[in-house]
Amino acid sequence: MAQSAAASQVLVKTGDEMSLDTELSRLLQILQVHEEDLLSRWTEAVSRQLRGRAVQLEVRRELTEIWNALRAGVAMGTTDAQSPAFDELRSLLAELSRTRARHGFSPRETAIGVLALKDSAQNVLDPAGDGSGLAELYREFLALGRLVDELEMFTFETFAEARERVIADQAEQLLELATPVVKLWDGIVALPLVGTLDSARTQVVMESLLQTLVDTGSAHAIIDITGVPAVDTQVAQHLLKTVVAARLMGAECIVSGIRPQIAQTMVALGIEFGDIATKATLADALALALSQTGTDIVRRAPRRRPRDS
C-alpha cells in the first residue's frame, strides 16, 4: 500500500528531484555489492563512539535493520525523509533514539548511528582515500548526504523529546520520593520536608501525611522544615492548612526545624502560627509529642559492669 503511494509521488516530482532519486538508488545498488564491508565499517565506527557501552553484535543488528529499511525506502523512488516510504526507517530510528535517551547516552552518541553511514560508505567506495573511487559519484553522494542529514535531524528531535520525557518522569518520581512520612513512635509520625514547596508538592505532602495519620492511627504529627530554604506566605499557608486538616482528623501537629534566619524572615513577613506548637529541632518536637502521649523518657543509671565474669 505504501508502494502505490510512493509510486504516485514519483510521478509528480520535478526532473531534478527525480534524478536525485535515481542517483541515490544507483548509489545504494553499488553499496549493496559491498554490503558486508559497509556494515562492518559502519558497526565499527558506531561501536567506537559508544566505547563498549553497547554490544557490537547488537549494534550490528540495529544498523542492518536501518540499512534494509533505508534501501526499501529508496527503492520506492524517493529521497524525502518525511515520505511514507521511510515510515519503517523512521520508526526504527525513533525507537533507537528513545532507548539511547533512556539509557543516558549523549546526543552525539545517538546521532552517530545514522551519521556514520556517510563516512563508512565513502571508505568502502574509496579505499585509497584519495577521492579516486568517488570521482564519478559526486551527485550520488550529495543525495545520500541530504537524506542522512534529514534522518539525523529526525533522530535528534526524537532523542530530545525522549530526554524531556525522562526528566519530567524523574521530577514526578522525586515529588513522591521526597515526601516520606516516617513513624517515630507509637502514635507519632514525622514529615521531614526538604527543598522547595510548590503547590503541587505541598498537595502531595499534605495528602500523604493525612493518609499516614489514618493508616497508623497516630494522633501526633511533626512537620520538620529544616530542609526548606525559605518560608514565604505560600509555604506558610500550605503548612497552616495542613495543620488545620490534621486537627479536623483529631491529630495535633508540631512544626519543627525553624532555623534562625527563617524565624526572622517569618517575623518580618508577618506570618503567625497562632497556637500551633513550634520547636527549634526535631528532637525537641519529639520530646514534646512524647510528653503529650504520656510517655516519659528516663535516662538509665549507668549499669555497673562486673569486673570479671
Partner: peptide
C-alpha cells in the same frame, strides 16, 4: 548575611508570585 539572603529571596518569591 544568611539572614539577609533569606529575606531578599523570600521577598523576591512574594513579588514574583
Amino acid at each position: 548575611s544568611l539572614v539577609d539572603q533569606t529575606k531578599i529571596v523570600t521577598a523576591a518569591s512574594e513579588l514574583a508570585r
